[in-house]
Design a protein around this nucleic acid. Structure first.
Lengths: 210, 210
DNA sequence: TTTTTTTTCAAACATATGTTTTAATTGAAC
DNA sequence: GTTCAATTAAAACATATGTTTGAAAAAAAA
């Protein structure tokens, strides 16, 4: 077993279980059992269960945030070069599209995105604090760009509309793939693209309301 | 101590702690300690920790759902009597307004609404299943009324737009009262009315998009 | 009051938890 | 091949957990 293989298997297993059962409802024994490694490996490689959670977030969130940041910077710069204000939908798209498309970025990523969908409003301080630490800078960046896009909107209203949009996105992530509570005649969405399109329509329209 | 006083104190304490720390991260000892009752009282009065969670939901959700259902029925009937289709915003308002106003309905209700905000996408099966059992009928009713309000919209799109709206509402509930992650210049909203107005603007606009 | 039921209480139970320890094993550097 | 650090393994640790028990106390019924 190569040097980092144990670490990665623990990360994969933790990601899978945290997403499905929550942080506190997942035991280290369940994680190591699923990963096929020894119980003590978690504390040896990560130090503690909390540090493992942080590592789970870090592994996926760093590359995802990199894409989101680059997208946002491009939107801002392109608008600046063209002497116009950033568009609302393109700004939101720069943030939302990579998020919803993330599950396709590799095996296991679909587990992680469920974690992200919930983390924002997780009752657990540990989960929420770690997540907010990673997401806050991007949130501020998106907020700034939207302020340029909608200069006539009051800061407070813009802030809350962005919260609504993030809430809609998080809930959409959690619901995607779930089949419960579907009313008759509703077919569960399979492709991410159409869900992204629907979500962007919805939040951009709400955001641009005069 | 009157017959039901112990039960109520347990319910209050559990509500408070479940909302702040989550179901699995709250121990019976923490609940009974806070309530000032004996540890065994939970199992004596409710049977189990899970049954206590159900009781916490039941106590508040039954009256809240009653209001929401009545509101929705009124919207539907009024429109029918006036020979028109229900309005999108009034339909959403019938559901959302009592939800966001619920914290004012009595002491402790502000704890409960946090629980509601998170329950929909709770990672824990126990929490989510109990909640969905209570909320599903109302969801279907709102869905039906919105279908009347927006007959030209495809069922799938309507379904997802309603999910977006519910996600926005849930997240707004979780964020209201929180002071972290506030960008500079944003003042935390104190009154529920303006938050409700902003949310209704946002979701109704997104819902009505052609 | 006496009896009976309901409720409270302290203690114990059985199990699950995150973490640590100590020894065995591995794998590369010398 | 030997040495040495890195990793794995099994066991133990200390504590926390939901639940049950059986007796005491309180309340209600007789």
């Amino acid at each position: 077993m190569s040097l980092s293989e144990t670490k990665e298997r623990i990360l994969d297993s933790a990601e899978y279980l945290f997403a499905r059962k929550g942080f506190h409802n997942t035991s280290l024994r369940a994680i190591t059992g699923r990963a096929g490694v020894n119980l003590a490996a978690v504390n040896y490689h990560f130090g503690s269960k909390e540090a493992l959670l942080e590592a789970v977030f870090e592994r996926r969130l760093v590359p995802l945030n990199k894409v989101r940041r680059e997208n946002l910077e491009i939107v801002r710069e392109t608008a600046r070069q063209e002497g116009r204000v950033p568009g609302v939908e393109e700004s939101l798209r720069a943030f939302i599209e990579p998020t919803l498309a993330f599950p396709k970025s590799g095996p296991g990523a679909e587990d992680f995105i469920i974690l992200v969908g919930r983390a924002m409003s997780d009752p657990d301080d540990t989960v929420r604090d770690v997540f907010i630490r990673y997401i806050a800078p991007l949130f501020y960046l998106l907020f700034d760009i939207l302020r340029e896009a909608l200069p006539e909107l009051s800061t407070d209203i813009l802030f809350w509309r962005l919260q609504f949009a993030i809430g809609a996105m998080g809930h959409a992530i959690c619901m995607a793939g779930k089949s419960y509570a579907l009313p008759e005649g509703v077919t569960p969405v399979s492709d991410v693209e159409s869900l992204t399109a629907m979500l962007l329509d919805f939040v951009a329209t709400g955001m641009e309301r005069p």
